[in-house]
């Protein structure tokens, strides 16, 4: 079930103004349709440029975005979130509360909120567009993830694997770079309870 969590804003680079947006928990057919009709054509258009590297990142496995849509629809341990603006899905996030634990002291071994995937729509990303539209989906979704983790009594402990091009984003936000994860072939970042409190302050 899709639930409105609250009103937020995104910065419209085209107009240099903030536009009203909304964050939802759970996805509905609108989000899946946006992905199919709006996101996917953009992703496919740039596939030859970005897909080659990403394909390698995936170890030549199947198409990742189909994978996550499937997960959002079917796997109970995942919580899906969307940020919408102008009637369109601008960002998506999947969170897993079941399978990951904190690696950092002083709460090493305790459950944490693991961000399985967070992505902005292709037209908001510099990697896909020379003139990206909205800025802020990453922050909105991360702040939502921390809110959700705290609501689930995880006190803000949050982990994720950053894509290489995003590594410079997570460090300054208060995440600790825990090093290269052989399994995921990505750097693992984790936010402690104290860092989460500081982020939301």
């Amino acid at each position: 079930m899709k639930t409105l969590l609250g009103e937020v804003v995104l910065f419209n680079r085209w107009t240099d103004r903030f536009d009203p947006a909304a964050v939802y928990q759970g996805l509905d057919s609108t989000n899946f349709r946006d992905f199919e009709n709006l996101w996917k054509p953009e992703l496919d258009r740039r596939a030859a440029e970005f897909g080659t590297w990403a394909e390698a990142a995936e170890g030549n496995t199947q198409d990742a975005h189909w994978d996550w849509v499937g997960k959002a629809k079917s796997e109970a341990s995942y919580e899906a979130f969307a940020v919408e603006c102008g009637g369109v899905t601008q960002g998506l996030m999947l969170i897993d509360l079941a399978l990951h634990h904190a690696r950092l002291p002083p709460h090493k071994g305790l459950d944490l909120c693991y961000i399985e995937l967070v992505a902005s729509a292709p037209w908001n990303r510099r990697g896909f567009s020379d003139n990206p539209k909205y800025k802020g989906t990453g922050r909105v979704l991360l702040a939502t993830a921390l809110s959700f983790g705290i609501d689930q009594e995880l006190k803000g402990r949050t982990g994720l694997h950053s894509l290489p091009e995003s590594e410079t984003w997570y460090g300054p936000l208060g995440f600790t770079n825990c090093g290269y994860d052989e399994g995921k072939q990505l750097q693992y970042f984790e936010m402690t309870e104290a860092a989460a409190a500081s982020f939301l302050a």
Partner: peptide, 20 residues
């Protein structure tokens, strides 16, 4: 958002198409 750097923020598995 106004003071955030204008950088990529993606995490997790690469969200791209592989259709070549």
């Amino acid at each position: 958002i106004a003071s955030d750097p204008d950088v990529e923020t993606e995490a997790g598995r690469p969200l791209v198409g592989f259709d070549q």
